[in-house]
Nucleic acid binder design. Sequence first.
DNA 1: TCTGAAATAGGTTGGCC
DNA 2: GGCCAACCTATTTCAGA
Lengths: 163, 163
Amino acid sequence: MFGRGARIDAVDELDRAILRELQSDARRTNRDVAAAVGVSPSTALERTRALRRRGVIRGALLDVDLGAMGRPVQALVSVRIRPPSRAVIEEFRDWAQGLPETLGVFVTTGTADFVLHVAVPDNDRLYAFVIDRLTQHTAVADVRTSVVFEHLRTTRVDPVAQD
Amino acid sequence: MFGRGARIDAVDELDRAILRELQSDARRTNRDVAAAVGVSPSTALERTRALRRRGVIRGALLDVDLGAMGRPVQALVSVRIRPPSRAVIEEFRDWAQGLPETLGVFVTTGTADFVLHVAVPDNDRLYAFVIDRLTQHTAVADVRTSVVFEHLRTTRVDPVAQD
DNA sequence: TCTGAAATAGGTTGGCC
DNA sequence: GGCCAACCTATTTCAGA
């Protein structure tokens, strides 16, 4: 192992095919996946479990309709932190991640240290989130808010050959 | 129906509990969910199906490790489009959504018309994506790239009471 | 590795409270 | 609307190629 040009546990064609099927619907039954990729159920099961063991598959996330959940308004909130030291960054990251409005936290380079993806019931709540909640945190130096009209997610991440 | 203060198909306490369980792992078996929320399997099944029918649950997404998929470098790419007319916006949105590097597309207000969330094998590929691929599109007027050091996603979206 | 059949566990339905 | 119990289908295991 560790031979030149080959990573440990490379994802082969069968693995790729299984990942394609499961990405289209993470609840596909093992039988379905096996039939779709053309192997026996036990083979598909063993491959899927190996992908899980190796950490390629981390789990299955529920895709919910944010409108139906009472949070139709989404925004990307860019936040500048001061000072941007590790301790402050990590503390803010965990705090932001725990807010009920937060869908995701990006820790970034560039003009913003963080980009928060949030979903709220209406514009009033968005404004309140930014001017009440965020500015309440002492490390927040600057905030810029962009309303998200539409958010499309890709359900197909192709593995790149790791030679 | 359509009575004052109540939306059609309001999400009740049992629905909320089921959504909480499934958001922790979208592959939880119906039996597990039923036991966790304290109802019989047939009740849990009927509720879950109703949530699906009503569009509250849209599906289950596979959570993959982008590093293991050979795409350890993530970025948020802000794009300004000209002219920002409906036709151009929608054409660019669909084009960007179809690129293999793209994880998600945000259509936004503010200084950028789009924010693209992308994952690539390395910094060279990120640079190539921005200066070769994106600028190839005639509607792209301006691009700003932020590298994403870390991306945390929330796995718990609480429904907000829709009174 | 992959297969196929046998054992186990889960999803599903209908009658009932 | 929710529960129970029987039915049926899928997952999982294991011996063998």
